[in-house]
Write a protein that binds this DNA or RNA. Sequence first.
DNA 1: TCAATATGGTAAAAGCATTTACCTACATTG
DNA 2: CAATGTAGGTAAATGCTTTTACCATATTGA
Lengths: 367, 367
Amino acid sequence: MASKRATLADVARLAGTSPTTASLILNGKPDTRFSADAHRRVHDAVAQLGYRPNMGARALRTDRSLTIGFISDVVATTRFASGLIRGALEEAEKAGHVMLVLETGGDPARQDEAVGAVLDRQVDGIVFATMRARELVMPSLPESTRVVMLNATSPQFGLSVLPDEESGGRSAVDLLAAAGHTEGIALIGQNDEVEDDLFRSATVARRVHGLRSEVKALGLSLLTEESCWEWEPENGYRLTAELLDRRPDVTSLLCMNDRLAFGAYQACQERGLTVGRDISIVSFDNDELAAYLRPGLTTIGLPHEAMGHQAVQLLLSEAAPGERLIEMPVVERSSISVGDTESSTALLARERLDARRKHARDTIPTP
Amino acid sequence: MASKRATLADVARLAGTSPTTASLILNGKPDTRFSADAHRRVHDAVAQLGYRPNMGARALRTDRSLTIGFISDVVATTRFASGLIRGALEEAEKAGHVMLVLETGGDPARQDEAVGAVLDRQVDGIVFATMRARELVMPSLPESTRVVMLNATSPQFGLSVLPDEESGGRSAVDLLAAAGHTEGIALIGQNDEVEDDLFRSATVARRVHGLRSEVKALGLSLLTEESCWEWEPENGYRLTAELLDRRPDVTSLLCMNDRLAFGAYQACQERGLTVGRDISIVSFDNDELAAYLRPGLTTIGLPHEAMGHQAVQLLLSEAAPGERLIEMPVVERSSISVGDTESSTALLARERLDARRKHARDTIPTP
DNA sequence: TCAATATGGTAAAAGCATTTACCTACATTG
DNA sequence: CAATGTAGGTAAATGCTTTTACCATATTGA
């Protein structure tokens, strides 16, 4: 029966009106323009035929397609990226939009192709997401195209959404201090060297800067900083093992990411130290891994989903250029032992932590 | 300068031809239809203006949008699903298509909306992907809409792409047997009970069936089957710990997934058993986790990426209905100790394993 | 020389929704 | 009575591409 899709002309015919009238009734804001009867007839016809407008035809006329382009370098290769997509997808759906997802692998040629492909489909805007490069050089676009950079910045497009790494760094320190760990804190995995990996150097710099300034703000100091290049379990293991053997006075580990922490767990266990009791660990990313570890790893999460939401929201609003920083959630599990939580430093740390959380709640409107 | 997008009319004007001619030259197969000079002029104009056809307008006329819809219940929630997307994305790009990705969370209302939304955009076909339900009830679609089910089946749509779970089960057993483990093999995590989770019961049944029949085919038998409901590390740990204490003669563990194996590792380590030397473990899924473990976990991977490729390929071809089973890759790491690899059983197992691999290579054309 | 057939092209319709400019019939106002 | 409004509605243009049907002109064959 539904052999052919109904068109507006069909609706008009069935309702006994002109297509103009039908269109005006279906799209016009001032409902008073036509008689109540005409309204009824048109809506009945729509329901009866199951009419839905053809978006291609509409876009042709209105230049709005209710479609947005999401172009990323890698979505699936990196285990986190899907959070960005999911957030964006949800927000798009909420706004009645649909999302064209393309991947470029970071290759400029494919990137150009991707931009062309979405432009050919008259998207209402483009989100450029990345997990690798920080500064993205983009093909030039028509003036009117709305663009937001997601987890990236670009010299050409001013609007970007990033995790608030500095604030995250601060939170990690506060977490330790609030639990009473005011000395014997080691930083594992930081790396101050100039890197050619722009992405990492930018995020690392902010994260480390946050850590260090919070340490200072609380009047503390780090016992040691153990640096390494690859943030993989091996290095976490090695660094921690060496450190533990060298400095028996270490009480807490700040790991730059969860994989390093994973290695650190192993080193601790081997030495008979129970994490969350004899030694405290806090790290970054909230990798899937973090939930599997025993005891659960307390970590400062990357707010990918919230970032995705925010990006699409900004894309569809008339937002002004600028960097939008999204608070990194602290996810507390059981890798921090509790000591003297009543010291003035602990109190101060908790206060600062809470203030930051509150600020985040007030700032990002995304649920 | 490029203030407005060039249209075909612009091209025609610049080339000094009619739009008809320009269109025919750009799309027509028989290149001889027009003069060489006309060809040149049109192509020059295209290059000069950077003309690209407006897909909406084209789709209006031709009913082909070079766009496909990818509708899934959950892409990001499950850590694997992104492989499906990536595979599909790559294949789509290869075919000059672009992909609209929507997520429904499994909610029928959202599912209907999603179908409507992609149909409104005149997609050339729809891939329904799922990580949860196995049998999917879909809204009714126009006859002509091409559909393929990805990691799912449906009473309404005949074409589906699934992992070859049975073959994967066989491979796991062969892997152990080929390394000389012909007795003392325990199965961890299987569950024969009737489940209301259709998805799991279908895949588990095939996987287990494969395991058991391969055991039989090699003339072996399982030492024990330890069943549990949730395939989480806790259970892997508990089941293995109990088993180890009860049966000192266990030499190998077949875990139903990598998370169970993760728990099993811990239990073994606690008892002073070195995985890959004192005890062998093989499991399923090739979770991210599997690479982090020390020693690396040998596992039978879910071929999500290949499945995504295949799905889109089938969607865009005139493929006949049926179930397409994609071979599960065996990814060998170091969790299996090597024993007597020269026994006739070991030889037989290796032979069967190789035959299956070869078959897979010949069968799935996807790189 | 007439008819047939290439050769190289074009006008116009179709596909669908939106929107501008206009129209009719009636009522009101001065 | 003429002028003005207003309520309720429509014809036709527009956005862009593809495609059908048709047109000249020149060449060839008989």
